[in-house]
Computed example of a mutant assay.
Amino acid sequence: MLRVATRNSSRVIFQRSVNITIRLQSNFFSTSIIKSAREGTLNSFIPDVKPLGQDNTIESNVPSETNRLSRTLTKFWEKVHVKYDDKLHQYDVQLDGKTLKTPLGFPLSLPESKRHLANLIAHEWANLPDLKVKTHSLPLTSIAARSIDLTMINNQDSVNNEMIAKVGNLEDIKLNLLRYFDTDTCLIFTTHDEYKGTLRKKQDELYLPLIKEYEDFFTVYAKREGNLLPSDDSKIELEYLDCITDGLRGNKQSITTQNVVLHWLNNLPIYDLIALERAILTSKSFLCGITLLRSNVTDKHNLQHLYQVNRSNPDDYYHKSIDEIIELGNLETIYQTAEWGEVEDTHDVDKVDWIRNLTSAAILCH
């Protein structure tokens, strides 16, 4: 049996909600809190939301290919291809000549900049087995469909509360992600007793530079955006939990840090926001999620204004590989399995899930 390290215990016990400004508190989580982007499965087409006792499953009222596949788990098409619409400047993923629909019934059409994503989604559908489709087979379709549904319902003139209840309100999604900053796995340090001090040594090696990087990143961003800091000489300082000196207590970012980070979140394109969501929910780390965006977004404007604000030279842009991000977010488990061994059908499956989810997020924001 694996030992549960102190850091994990504290993270579970002391999760706290974010305290932001009174204005934001008025919009804080409604009764239809969304559990979103669940691990890249076919079931992620159908967010697990039943507000006020109602059964609001998407496939009950929207006839779409994604919902049909989610119900039947069998292949019902022959040909898959991508069609470019030169009038709308978008790529439509089609089955047997008909454009796929998302769980909310919108066309699975991707902007011109997402051509590679459209082709990879077509590849997913073209290579599903003839029999017994597995529930993890469409991670790219899942994450792209979520992005499209959120884009469409938030661009409508009138608010459709039923649709919002199924995929989530953008403000709630951002605030939910911000909560992970308090419990970020990269902001909790174990004692020197764990694994003869080797884990703490590795945490110091990986996490301290990471903290310094993001303190600089958000300080530069805050000053560039009209100085969101209390004074000209103020700097963002990330709060972290050191189990040697702090024991078992909760970690919490300052109100200034929360407001700066929320300001940054409000400027993200929806596709990037959903990529961030999947990366954070997979790694349980806000810093790992940002690192994935900074390492994979290719839009030059967004790189300069959102993701590399503290780096002036493209050759010096901050970057981590998927493997490096997995190490950051999964460091304690790596040490646990090295010490106690892997649990079959648990740790090996987790590894595949990490790779699939982070890779699909990286492709979405590319």
Results as ranks from 00 to 15, higher is better:
227 N>D: 02
320 K>Y: 13
320 K>I: 02
240 Y>R: 01
118 A>Q: 03
263 H>Y: 02
213 E>A: 09
361 A>D: 02
341 G>M: 07
211 I>L: 15
353 D>T: 07
238 L>K: 05
95 L>N: 07
262 L>H: 05
97 G>A: 03
90 Q>V: 07
366 H>Y: 13
345 D>W: 12
83 K>M: 05
239 E>I: 07
269 P>T: 05
68 R>Q: 11
166 K>N: 13
155 N>Q: 14
231 S>Y: 11
210 L>M: 12
170 L>W: 06
324 E>F: 01
316 D>G: 02
188 I>W: 15
75 K>I: 00
270 I>M: 07
303 L>Q: 10
319 H>C: 12
4 V>A: 08
225 E>M: 13
331 L>F: 04
117 L>I: 08
93 V>M: 01
70 S>T: 04
357 N>Y: 10
129 P>R: 02
305 H>P: 03
243 C>T: 02
308 Q>H: 10
308 Q>M: 06
184 D>P: 09
359 T>V: 09
157 D>Q: 13
180 Y>E: 05
96 D>M: 04
14 F>K: 00
214 Y>W: 10
46 I>A: 04
244 I>R: 15
278 R>T: 02
9 S>Q: 14
342 E>A: 07
165 A>W: 10
204 D>S: 13
46 I>Y: 15
313 N>Q: 10
136 H>G: 11
191 T>L: 14
273 L>P: 00
105 G>M: 03
26 S>N: 11
308 Q>R: 09
265 L>Q: 00
178 L>T: 00
112 E>W: 11
17 S>T: 09
264 W>Y: 03
45 F>I: 06
359 T>S: 08
266 N>K: 08
18 V>H: 07
337 T>Q: 06
236 I>M: 04
144 A>Y: 14
128 L>K: 08
188 I>H: 15
123 H>S: 08
89 H>M: 09
181 F>G: 04
246 D>C: 03
366 H>S: 10
44 S>C: 08
95 L>D: 01
11 R>M: 11
251 N>A: 05
219 T>R: 08
280 I>E: 03
272 D>N: 10
55 D>F: 12
334 I>F: 11
345 D>G: 01
167 V>H: 13
245 T>L: 08
295 S>H: 09
319 H>S: 06
21 T>N: 07
295 S>E: 05
45 F>T: 00
216 D>M: 10
268 L>R: 02
318 Y>D: 05
26 S>M: 10
319 H>F: 15
99 T>G: 05
131 L>Q: 13
128 L>Q: 07
21 T>Q: 06
250 G>A: 06
346 T>K: 14
91 Y>K: 01
12 V>N: 11
238 L>H: 00
164 I>S: 06
103 P>E: 06
144 A>Q: 08
220 V>R: 06
133 V>R: 05
284 K>N: 14
9 S>P: 01
187 L>W: 12
96 D>R: 07
17 S>M: 12
133 V>L: 05
251 N>P: 00
287 L>W: 02
154 N>Q: 14
131 L>M: 10
122 A>R: 13
134 K>F: 14
311 R>W: 14
330 N>I: 02
113 S>G: 09
29 F>S: 05
4 V>E: 09
344 E>R: 11
149 D>I: 08
66 T>R: 12
167 V>A: 09
363 I>V: 12
340 W>V: 00
25 Q>P: 00
147 S>A: 15
282 T>R: 09
311 R>L: 10
206 L>E: 08
237 E>A: 01
273 L>K: 00
